[in-house]
Simulated scan of single mutants.
Amino acid sequence: MTRPIILDLTPDAQGMATLFAAVQAPDHVRPVLVLFSGAAAQVATAITQARDLLRQCGVAGVEVHAGSPGALVATHAPAPVAQGAEGLGAQYLVEAIRACPPDSVTLCCSGPLTTLALALIQAPDVRTHLHGVIVSGGALFSPGDATAVAERNIAADPEAAATVLAMGVPVTLIPLDCTARLNADAVWMEGLAPMGVMPASVAGHVHALLAAARTGGARGSGVDISLRAAAPLLALLSPGIFCGHLAHVDVECHGTFTRGMTVARHIGMGGVQPNALVLERMSVEAGRGVLRELLLAGQGAEA
């Protein structure tokens, strides 16, 4: 069965690589909508790149839009809104979910959950169309990457994450504990060298984006970059390389030092009911291997 998927991506090289990988598995997944959320300039660039990528790969009918800008609760000055994205991200998401049959579509979210939270608030009926929501976010036992205790995607909009977890949708959470070592190191990039043989191709462009991200500008050359953006897609395509457990995940929305912190309570004690499948471990080498093979499969992807 080919499952319809919606990709809510970060507007960076890793997000573009995830999109490119997703279109290489047509027997398993079929993208129906792509969203990008982040800084306006980066989102605008990513949208242009993604539309061109899909066109060159011969994938028709997939809309690409900006996700909802900002957070549900503004804690500082509003971020600039990407052109054409004036609050429409959630509307595009609702329309795409409703267009899919009940219990069919999976959302792969590698950024903040603002757009999904707004869609669920505005149109609770879309829950019946969702087969699952796979989220790269949270930090349970490892340090956070936004604060000492909070992972950046959850910290960017804790209220949105709490809303999604409270809406009764089937959530799979992939925290930092699981993906901390899922990186693009020098050895992995060397395995992608065939992608760069034809720089003008879509594969060559994706390879160049990843290589530039690893160069890191002022950070120095050859810096490993996280591949966490691809973790939700990997969990959907290769669930056997992950292991986890059902839990009730809470999000701290108020603490001065703990805002954005995620806490997982095991079920079976005190009437605790699960609201997520938490993936606590993965075979990093297997995951990087799956992603590498998908990317290499796209070398001749141009239509």
Rank of each mutant, 00 (worst) to 15 (best):
A211V: 05
A186Y: 07
D125C: 13
L120Q: 04
A162V: 09
A184V: 05
G240T: 13
A200T: 15
A148V: 14
V133I: 04
A119C: 09
M189Q: 14
S226F: 02
A155W: 11
G111S: 12
L176Y: 02
A156N: 04
A148P: 03
D125M: 12
F141N: 10
L173I: 07
D177E: 02
V223T: 15
A212E: 10
G204P: 07
P175Q: 01
S142Q: 08
C109M: 15
A208G: 14
P175Y: 04
P194W: 07
T115Q: 09
H248S: 10
C243V: 00
G168Y: 09
L236C: 11
L120A: 01
D185F: 04
F141T: 08
S201N: 10
L210N: 01
H129K: 06
C243T: 05
D250I: 06
P124G: 13
C109T: 14
G144R: 09
V223H: 14
P124D: 12
C109E: 14
D177W: 03
L236E: 14
G168L: 06
L107H: 10
G220M: 04
H131E: 07
A166D: 11
G191F: 04
A230C: 08
G244M: 06
P143Y: 02
G137T: 10
H207K: 06
V187P: 05
M198G: 06
P158V: 06
E159I: 10
E190N: 05
D125Y: 04
A180R: 15
G111N: 12
R152I: 06
G138H: 06
W188V: 06
M167A: 13
T215V: 10
A247W: 03
V149D: 01
H205S: 15
A155Y: 09
S201I: 07
V164P: 00
I154P: 03
W188P: 01
L107M: 10
R228G: 12
A148C: 11
G196F: 00
